[in-house]
Each structure stands twice: as C-alpha cells, then as structure tokens.
Amino acid sequence: MTKRMILPLIFGVVGAAILLSLGTWQLRRLAWKEGVLAEIEARIHDSPVALPAAPDPETDRFLPVQAAGRFTGEQVRVLASVKRVGAGHRLIAAFETDGRRVLVDRGFLPLQSGSEALPEGTLTLTGNLHWPDEVDSFTPGPEPDQNLWFARDVPALAGHMGTEPVLIVAREVSGQGGAVAPLPVDTSGIPNDHLGYAVTWFGLAIVWLGMTGLLLWRIRRKTV
C-alpha cells in the first residue's frame, strides 16, 4: 500500500462506518415503532369504556368508548376516498349523550350514494376517541355553503357545530343501516418507514465501499 492510498482508505472506512451505523439505528427505530404500533393496536381493540368527563388528546387518543344518545341531524361532509371504492365523504355528526354534545365520525358515504338518513331515537355507538392530524399549509379551507370540509379538524369542527372538541370514530352504530360504512380507527395511517430508511443507508454503505475500492484500485494502477 502506498502513502497515496492511506487517506482514501481512511475516508472510505469512516464513511462506510457512519452509513452502517445509521442503518443500524433505523433498524432499532423499526423495532421500537413496531412495539408502539402493537400497543396502539391492542388499545384500539380493548374493551370500550364510558366517555371520559374531560378527554385528553394525548392520553386518551385511540381510547375505545361506548356512548348512548342521539344524533341531532347536524352534520358536515369531509372529502375522503377509500381504496377500491373511490371518492366520497366522511360524515361528521353532532351527537348528544348524557347532556353533552360531541362529534362522531359515522363513516364513509360514496359519492354515488343517495341521501343518508340519520337513525332516529336513542341508539348506542362504539368507537375510538381520535384527534386526527390532517391539517397542513396545503389544506383548503372549508366551504360552509356546500357543507364541505377537507380535513377532520376537531377544534374547528367543534366550534362550527357547537360541540366539545371530542371526536368518536365509530366502529359500530346501532340502527345506522348500510348506506354509511364505518371507517374504524386502525394503525394503517401511522407511517412506519424505518425499514426502507435502513435499506437505503445500507445500500449507500455498499456503494461507498465500492467507490472506495475502485478509487484505491485506480491509485494502485498509477503507482505500479
């Protein structure tokens, strides 16, 4: 080995070590995220409890609840789409229970469906508390004249409909009928890209080592 090869070799080894460590870190993050998702999934399908007096967006997220009451007839549509079904709306309705008014995500209504009749009288619903993070700088504002929203912005919807800033995403609603299909909370919308990141870092490490080997080979040819 010539002196001219030492610096490129050190540079190549250190760079590859950094890339490999980043890939390993992503694998650790993958294991952590899978554990978190397993905990969330277990909580989602736990036995439902009564609606808390003052639900907290952090500690009570995904909490399964059951509530008896009635829909008031007030509702808005949130633009949505479902795989293999197409475009439609989530129906967000005001729900009265034990002297309280909360929001309920009743489920999905395809665009081609007719008018959806709200069930009358007292009914029972089971679902999960949720505060979706769906609003960013690109989200259009609501169109009140069309009763159309583009995200489930719980505080804004609560202000618009005069309810608590609490959303129950329905899993089952007694007497709802088949027009509206519940879209229960699950973990499919929670990103878990750590495996892809790990593969990327390990791939870059392989490329880095290959380029280092090629550089060392060219330096050696010139010095022979």
Rank of each mutant, 00 (worst) to 15 (best):
R61N: 15
G99I: 12
V185C: 10
D98M: 13
W208V: 03
V65M: 10
L215N: 15
E96G: 04
L214S: 13
I92R: 06
L27P: 07
W149T: 02
T212D: 03
L148P: 06
V78A: 07
F95N: 07
A170Q: 04
I168V: 13
M1E: 05
L167P: 05
A31L: 03
G114V: 00
L37P: 03
I40H: 11
A16H: 02
A93M: 06
T122D: 15
G99A: 14
T200Y: 09
L63I: 08
F11R: 02
R221I: 01
L27D: 13
L123C: 06
T124C: 05
L27R: 09
L123A: 09
G203I: 09
Q66G: 12
P110I: 03
V185L: 15
R152H: 00
Y197R: 06
R4N: 06
E39T: 00
P8S: 04
W208H: 15
G12C: 06
A54L: 11
A179T: 11
G175E: 08
A16S: 12
H194K: 02
Q75I: 00
S115F: 13
G175S: 08
F202N: 08
A170N: 04
Q112R: 04
I10K: 00
A31C: 00
H130Y: 12
V180G: 03
S21I: 01
T97K: 15
P144K: 08
T126M: 12
A94R: 15
E74V: 00
R221C: 07
S137Q: 10
R106N: 08
